[in-house]
């Protein structure tokens, strides 16, 4: 059987790729579309490094098939900055030193952005539980939480 031809939208661009049924969406984004900003930490949905937005919903791209992306809208870390403008979360992750090795960072940023869109004024506890699916082994989470809380406050102030 031939491979599936998938037409989808990534960060606003129309893209097409070919894949086998068993290829995860993560595999397709990285290895078929060569967009390597989305990371694989486990392949089983336990680390969140592969977080993306799929039709506006935060998901692990390792837990969806590439073929399921047909006709859908995908947003990845590569689509988070707008031109020269970093997203305020990206700015604050640098400012607050919310990353060390940086491998979890794309997933954390995508997840945090989804949180702030849904809940502009989260408590520390809400941020922690929302991000519980994003493992970070370097930071102990402290500076990540501070960066997300500070961004929320900043966005509320400018809204």
């Amino acid at each position: 059987m031939s491979r599936h031809h998938v037409t989808t939208t990534i960060n606003g661009d129309n893209v097409e790729f070919l894949c086998d049924t068993e290829q995860s969406l993560l595999d397709c984004i990285r290895n078929e579309l060569h967009m390597t900003g989305t990371k694989e930490g486990c392949g089983t949905g336990d680390c969140g490094a592969c977080s993306i937005m799929l039709d506006g919903r935060l998901v692990c791209s390792c837990l969806a098939l590439g073929v399921e992306a047909e006709g859908k809208e995908i947003m990845t870390i590569e689509g988070m900055a707008q031109g020269d403008e970093l997203h305020p979360l990206q700015e604050n992750f640098i400012k607050f030193a919310a990353l060390q090795c940086g491998i979890c960072t794309p997933g954390v940023l995508i997840a945090a952005r989804a949180l702030l869109e849904k809940n502009p004024d989260p408590t520390e506890t809400e941020v922690r539980f929302w991000l519980a699916g994003n493992l970070c082994r370097c930071t102990g989470y402290d500076k990540i939480i501070r960066a997300v809380m500070a961004t929320a406050a900043q966005l509320r102030a400018t809204a």
């Binding site: 390597t36 900003g37 870390i77 590569e78 988070m80 640098i94 794309p106």
Partner: peptide
């Protein structure tokens, strides 16, 4: 290396 790492550009 901050910007590279928050934009997904950094190569692991």
């Amino acid at each position: 290396d901050g910007v590279d790492k928050v934009t997904g550009r950094a190569k692991y």
